[in-house]
Computed example of a mutant assay.
Amino acid sequence: MLSQFGPEIWLADGPSIKAAAGFHYPTRMVVIRLHGRDLLVWSPIALTDALCRDIETLGTVRYLIAPNTLHHMNMPDWIDAFPKASPFAAPGLQSKRADIAFAGELTETPEPAWTKDIDHVIMTGNAITTEVVFFHRPSGTLLFTDLLQQLPKGWYSGWRALIARLDLMTEPEPAVPRKFRLAFRDKNALRRSVHKIKSWSPRAVVMAHGTPVTQNVPPFLDRAFAWVPTPK
């Protein structure tokens, strides 16, 4: 179930998950091995015995990351399975999931435990969700949760397919869905975040819902965020 994507980084795809109005989404998580064989699990998918065994061959799960305020449904199962791991929440999630004993909330400063391997930027000012975009330095990989998506052709049918197309969820390449574009209230903060993302010079992009991008990443990011208004 785990597949190596690059140096010290693995992907695992899980079952689709249902959302509002009968929409469903494919799921993907990322496992990053830090120094000392500590593992960071980003956006955990549904936990199975086989997945648990695969992960334990890589190292010790130390950190569980809910990277936005929408990706949290599987966190309790992972916390139960790995009680020594520290779960971290995107800004705003702790109040939404008071039933989860998070170790802390992600801030603008990466945690010291993973700062040598991972940087991140908080995409603030969005009315739908606050998403934390991660960057894994050894592999040059960006991790997007919902702000970039590309669902497979034929994933939806009927009126849902029409809505997905209008929302830019089924574009030829991953794109920022229209609803998230409209939900950004603070355009200055958005520009700063996109600038930081591009400054990392990433070599790959992985999404929770979409096909990874592994070639010509800088021009891809230019296209993906071309809608962001420039300062007047």
Rank of each mutant, 00 (worst) to 15 (best):
L39H: 04
T48L: 14
A21Y: 09
A20E: 11
T57Y: 05
L47K: 10
G22K: 08
I45F: 02
D38P: 00
D49E: 15
V41S: 06
P44T: 07
I45D: 05
P26E: 11
A20N: 07
F23T: 03
L40H: 04
L39W: 07
S43T: 14
L34T: 06
T57L: 13
C52M: 08
A21C: 10
L58D: 04
T60Q: 00
I55T: 08
L47G: 05
D54E: 15
A50Y: 05
P44H: 10
G59V: 11
M29S: 10
G59H: 04
L40Q: 02
L34V: 13
L39G: 03
W42D: 09
T60C: 00
H35I: 15
R53C: 08
A20S: 08
G59C: 06
T27G: 02
A20T: 12
C52N: 10
V41H: 01
A50I: 13
A21G: 04
R37V: 03
W42Y: 14
A20V: 13
D49A: 14
R33C: 14
G22S: 11
G36I: 13
C52I: 02
V31H: 00
V31E: 05
H24K: 13
R37S: 12
I32W: 09
L47T: 05
I55D: 02
T48Q: 13
D54K: 04
A46L: 13
W42H: 15
V31K: 01
V31M: 07
V61K: 00
L34G: 03
V61Q: 02
R37W: 05
E56T: 07
A19T: 10
F23S: 01
G22D: 12
P44Y: 06
A46Y: 02
A46K: 13
L58C: 02
V31F: 01
E56L: 03
L34K: 01
M29P: 01
L47F: 02
D54V: 06
T27W: 04
C52L: 06
H24T: 12
A20M: 08
R53E: 15
V30Q: 03
D49W: 04
P26N: 06
R53H: 08
I32H: 10
R28I: 09
A20R: 06
T48D: 05
M29F: 08
A19S: 06
R53A: 14
A50W: 00
A50N: 09
G59I: 03
D49I: 14
A50V: 14
G36Y: 07
T60P: 00
V41E: 05
D38M: 06
L58T: 05
H24D: 11
A50M: 12
D49L: 10
G36V: 13
L40C: 09
L47N: 09
T60Y: 00
R33T: 11
I32P: 01
A46I: 10
V41F: 04
T27N: 01
A50D: 15
G22M: 08
P44A: 09
S43A: 15
A19C: 05
D54I: 07
W42L: 15
P44G: 12
L40V: 15
A19V: 09
V41D: 03
R33V: 08
L58W: 03
L51Y: 07
L47W: 07
T60E: 04
G36E: 13
D49R: 12
A20L: 13
L47I: 11
F23V: 07
L39K: 03
